[in-house]
Design a binder for these strands. Structure first.
Length: 600
RNA sequence: GGCCCCGUAGUGUAGCGGACUAACAUGCCACCCUGUCACGGUGGAGAUCAGGGGUUCGAAUCCCCUCGGGGUCGCCA
């Protein structure tokens, strides 16, 4: 698009040698030689060197002396091949340069609060305060473009398969279960509130009742919970729902979508096909978490049966108290120093463990277990075990000489939390987290409900609309904890990318679930009446999934927090450092909304 | 809500009880420089050491509180 500002962008210059062009952009760098001045001009497409020669264009040269980094300028001149020997192989346009004839400063700039080019760590609060400048940096520009391409790919992919994108409201009714809602007070109805969607869950099910059959939406979701590196108060999901499908249809679609997306956008990253499908119980057992990083082994193993009769009181007590003892082997780490091992113990304590038992097996890697003697087992607690017990443990962990064995003993949840994190830590230390490998996997067969000790009732593991397997339905009356959900998680490299399920389309089963969850008839009618009613008007069997876009783009971009792929993210404490939101509002605004602030 | 890490010129760091009148790099300003590309050279300005309180003869440095940023457990159907 040629206009009064420019005829071409920087990256196109190489194709117009010998011709006159105009370009516009930001001054990336100025090199003033007293006579000659060089400017690296930057626009979205890249860099182009501009030469100002006082003998070629005195006025343009004079203007160039006033230019400073990040000034916005327009330059007209001729594209020329650079003199032999002065080419710069470091930039794509390094073969050519623009000989300036005419220059105009469109806007000046104050000095930058932080460097645009330097990749070194700038305090994130400074970046967030000047986010519009942070986004000017090439790295952030790339992240945003990648995000755009991911979303564009998803839209094209689903459109080609007959999906319809439908927007759903941002102002909804609050549903107190699940995450904490963001609330919006109603002006017209004193004392009443809208809630922002935690996800368009119920709406997309209703769209299935409407007969759209294949729906999707790039949906903004809001959850008022504490933040993490991979969690923001508002985030974006690919929300998707289909009618007349079973699990395989949804999972196959996901596998096809993500396989083709990777091939198109990140061909250099390897993936594993077909995507592994593992049961919930299996991944908890093997990895201690429901979102395992499958790029490496270091699998956990339960050794409770081996050590329950050992002389080691800590293990015996844990097991006697209903707990377990699990461990895994860190290959080649038997030479960890006392201090390094103490670090690991501290790591475990910081994550809720009472401690950690380390056991170094002396000897070269690959050595035989038969030669193992207790004096080659270096641990503070070696004396409590027989050589047979140690051999069994080593064998159970698929370990051998040269390895460092790590054990935790406690309630199962604590052991799994500690060891799953320690597993990631050791993988990082051992360099096993390959950035060019993404292992997508599906986790299935979660329990439908879990017992809530404090509330003395059953809670949904996922949400109350998840269907149980048909064959497990009788268990709803006898043993609800054993009912398996037609639920699936989609995980990648230790992140939960997505949750989904086949939904309940039978109002009687839906009512039964609600009553098991200890909702009163009135609560059910009040909160879910519209959904139950809808299920009575010819609701088709349906199911869906909702991959998190932020986490996906984060993984594709090689970033380790989602703020790097969100244009204007909030801090860990849910504030916006640029606009200073949230902020107080005027008394007038409050009055209009029928609100009065409580003293704290 | 718990635990942990961080806060020193615009930016990134050093300094970790006295030699600090706070150093280095970069950025900024001025001057010099016609083939640089992280251009080079000379000179200069720039810091209530996050804020408050305490310990000490003496605090950027040690302790406590607060604020801000980050990580994590709980939480996130």
């Amino acid at each position: 698009m040629a206009n009064r500002y420019r005829t071409h962008n920087c990256s196109e210059a190489g194709r117009h040698i010998g011709r006159g062009i105009s370009v516009a952009g930001w001054v990336n760098r100025r090199r003033d030689h007293g006579g000659l001045i060089f400017i690296d001009l930057r626009d979205r497409s890249g860099l182009l060197q501009v030469v100002f020669n006082p003998q070629v264009a005195a006025e343009a040269h004079r203007i160039a002396t006033e230019m400073r980094p990040e000034y916005v300028v327009r330059i007209t001149g001729e594209v020329a091949r650079r003199p032999a020997g002065t080419e710069n192989p470091g930039i794509p346009t390094g073969e050519v340069e623009l000989i300036a004839r005419e220059a105009e400063i469109l806007n000046a700039s104050r000095p930058m609060p932080f460097p645009m080019s330097d990749e070194s760590g700038i305090d994130e609060s400074v970046r967030l305060k000047y986010r519009y400048l942070d986004l000017r940096r090439p790295q952030m520009q790339q992240n945003m473009m990648l995000r755009h391409r991911v979303i564009k790919f998803i839209r094209d992919f689903l459109d080609a398969r007959g999906f319809i994108e439908i927007e759903t409201p941002i102002l909804l009714k609050s549903t107190p279960e699940g995450a904490r809602d963001y609330l919006v007070p109603s002006r017209l109805y004193p004392g009443k509130f809208y809630a922002l969607p935690q996800s368009p869950q119920q709406l997309k099910q209703l769209l299935m009742v409407s007969g759209f059959e294949k729906y999707y939406q790039i949906a903004r979701c809001f959850r008022d919970e504490d933040q993490r590196a991979d969690r923001q108060p508002e985030f974006t999901q690919l929300d998707l729902e289909m009618s007349f499908v079973d699990e395989e249809n949804v999972l196959d679609l996901m596998e096809e979508l993500f396989t083709s997306l990777m091939a198109e956008l990140k061909p250099e990253i390897r993936i594993v096909k077909p995507f592994p499908r593992l049961s919930y119980h299996e991944v908890i057992e093997r990895f201690g978490t429901d979102k395992p990083d499958l790029r490496f082994g270091l699998e956990l193993a339960d050794v409770s049966d081996i050590v329950e009769d050992s002389e080691f009181g800590v293990f015996r007590t844990a097991i006697a108290g209903g707990g377990i003892v699990k461990g895994f082997a860190a290959p080649g780490c038997a030479d960890y120093s006392r201090k390094q091992q103490a670090e690991l113990v501290e790591f475990a304590r910081a994550r809720g463990g009472k401690g950690l038992v380390t056991m170094a097996i002396e000897g070269g890697q690959g050595g035989s277990l038969d030669d193992l003697t207790l004096d080659k087992v270096h641990s503070a607690v070696t004396r409590f075990f027989t050589i047979d017990q140690v051999r069994e443990m080593v064998k159970r962990l698929h370990a051998g000489p040269g390895d460092l064995l790590l054990f935790a003993a406690d309630k199962a949840e604590v052991v799994n939390t500690v060891l799953s994190q320690l597993r990631l830590e050791m993988a990082n230390r051992l360099g096993l987290t390959d950035p060019n490998l993404m292992v997508f996997a599906f986790i299935q067969d979660h329990p439908l409900m879990e017992w809530n000790q404090e509330g003395n009732r059953w809670d949904s593991m996922h949400h109350p609309f998840t269907a149980p397997y048909d064959e497990d339905i009788p268990l709803l009356d006898t043993d609800p904890g054993r009912v398996r959900a037609r639920h699936y998680d989609f995980v990648c490299n230790g992140y939960e990318l997505s949750s989904g399920s086949i939904r309940i389309h039978d109002s009687r089963i839906q009512e039964k679930i609600f009553s098991l969850l200890s909702y009163s008839d009135e609560e059910i009618r009040e909160r879910f009446g519209h959904l139950l009613e809808a299920l009575e008007f010819g609701a088709p069997p349906h199911g869906g999934i909702a991959p998190g876009i932020d986490r996906l783009v984060m993984l594709l971009a090689g970033e380790d927090n989602i703020r790097e792929v969100i244009a204007f993210p909030k801090t860990k404490s849910a504030t916006d450092l640029m606009t200073n939101a949230p902020d107080a509002v005027s008394e007038d605004q409050l009055r209009e909304l029928h609100l009065r602030l409580r003293a704290h």
